[in-house]
Design a protein around this nucleic acid. Structure first.
Lengths: 333, 333
DNA sequence: ATGAAAGCGCTAACAA
DNA sequence: TTGTTAGCGCTTTCAT
């Protein structure tokens, strides 16, 4: 026993080559299935050595050599938000099944630009951006060497692809559903910006159906926002008999405000919300919601990233579907 | 115009060196603040060139050269679960503030061993394992070259550190709270395994307080599990007046089952749950819960990973605190 | 079918 | 204080 082996020296491809009695190139050929053929017997020896040594290729070296990694970067506002969590989960599964890892960057309050640059320096295979892109950052997106696909942003960058739910028509369908139940009009909770598709859809649907324009209140996309918005609606005058909430979180908050005001759902007021997360399904009463097909969207966005030829540039809208639960009923009279 | 420049050739450290009129080493020294000093004037020239070229170091090359990356791997059962989502969010913030990225691996049903190996091959700086480690995988953990810190696993591997909430005492405190309110006994919802700390804490607290052993039902850690468990409890006989649920998700499900059975909370039955997620706070009524200090735990686990000297091996328990909301009251009687 | 060797971009030991 | 250069582990072209 002369040589003292480094106890934990990591096993490299050279060790495998030595043990198998071949060159390092052949080890690569074998493990990567190319680009040159390998004789079956040789391959067996290599695989043997790999198993014996417990060899794991060094991913960093592979990335450096290949110029790209098997990692997909995901930029997301906040992984702690259940809706984004569910979306991230769907993306993770889809990516994993294609052999990609997902690196999640929760921006919280930071700028997305920072993360775009950062992921680019990691030479990720591509970036999925589940956040509204600040128009000022568009130049950056084009400067970067990684492909970027937007998710849920209605405004794709020039030449880029964005996969999004059809918020506008979803909002219209929600309103139609409530009006069809017999409600005179529908109140709105969410972002009051005219460009916001859900707000526009709500407004247009009421107009087309000849219904009176309902009251509306600004509500940030959070449970607290829903509480505040609903309270504002209640204070403003006669309580509405029907409410369209722009997200589940808002609906959850609205529900809380209604409960506290002893207003019953759906007897006194009906609610339809957006997203259809488990949380809203398990609220009491269960909330009728427009479901976003997040699995499909995740799949499509990933395809766009991995196999760009399959998807033309532009906005790719996915329809939402109404999931009926107990929060909606005809008006009491 | 003779030479046709590659339009998007990525800028390397050599380009910076050339433009700044220095060697590549000096570029490194400047950007890394060492290991050799750099004259202020020289540094300025380098920084200038960096800015002018928009240079971003190639993280893969850095990882290869340094032998380790600035990435922390996080193994988590399911990022779509709100509790894990919140935990991941806390870990992400903590890591980010220390200059680390987080690579999230949601295992879903796969074995954690696969991800441990995978993250190791990525030469991550360390692995945070927010999942119960299968004892059969313990040998693997020792074979790997990356440091692993366990989160929420009451059984640290030999020589390793595990950071966890004190589930046992948390359960005891929950039971004490309910008994102090005047309840004769407390029912249990969760994992009935005797080794499960919350189950043990519940059982022991009742015994010590001289209360009758309450009924219990098995409930998987999900909303659906809570519904099923609560229904089982209701079918078994006289409804309990107080229930301890092992997690928020279980409590949410239990609440739903009680609502459907027209049993009022807290008038007819009080509930205390575990975790204290926003979802349980916004349930109706708001659920009294034992709060896990996830931010603190995330911080400590990260410290253990980055600065191992600061934390001795073994189990590091964090106390939980009772957050009172509207789901608890004295029994009707 | 196999091997030798030139990178990939960066770090850091060593030389100057 | 700055420059030269030998790696880090892997891929892949080009010889053989």
């Amino acid at each position: 026993m002369k040589e003292v082996l480094q106890p934990n020296r990591t096993v490299t491809r050279a060790d495998v080559a030595r043990l198998a009695g071949v060159s390092t190139a052949v080890v690569s050929y074998t493990l990567n299935g190319g680009p040159r053929p390998v004789a079956p017997g040789t391959a067996a020896k290599v695989l043997d050595a790999v198993a014996k040594l417990g060899y794991q290729p060094n991913a960093a070296a592979q990335t450096l050599s290949r110029g790209t990694s098997q990692v997909i970067g995901l930029i997301i506002p906040d992984i702690g938000n259940p809706f984004f969590g569910a979306f991230a989960s769907a993306i993770e599964s889809a990516a994993r099944s294609q052999g990609f890892d997902v690196m999640i960057c929760s921006t919280h309050s930071n700028s997305t630009a920072y993360y775009v640059r950062h992921l680019d320096s990691l030479r990720v295979h591509g970036i999925l951006m589940l956040a509204i892109l600040d128009p000022r950052d568009e130049p950056l997106v084009h400067k970067v060497s990684t492909r970027i696909v937007q998710l849920n942003d209605p405004r794709p960058v020039a030449g880029g692809v964005s996969v999004a739910a059809d918020l506008y028509n979803g909002a219209r369908d929600a309103v139609r559903h409530l009006i069809a139940l017999g409600h005179q009009t529908v109140a709105f909770l969410g972002d009051l910006d005219d460009g916001e598709p859900r707000h526009a859809g709500w407004r247009d649907a009421l107009r087309e159906l000849g219904a009176a324009p309902g009251p509306s209140a600004h509500a940030p996309f959070s449970r607290e926002g829903g509480v505040a918005g609903m309270k504002e609606l209640l204070l403003a005058g006669e309580p509405p008999t029907a409410v369209f909430a722009s997200s589940d979180m808002i609906a959850i908050g609205a529900l809380r405000a209604l409960h506290e005001a002893k207003i019953r759902v759906p007897e006194d007021v009906s609610i339809v919300s957006f997203d259809d997360s488990p949380e809203s399904a398990f609220a009491f009463p269960g909330i009728t919601a427009m479901r976003q097909p997040i699995e499909k969207m995740a799949q499509e966005a990933l395809t766009a990233l991995i196999n760009p030829r399959h998807l033309r540039p532009g906005l790719h809208l996915h329809p939402t579907t109404l999931v009926e639960r107990q929060s909606t009923a005809p008006p009491a009279r």
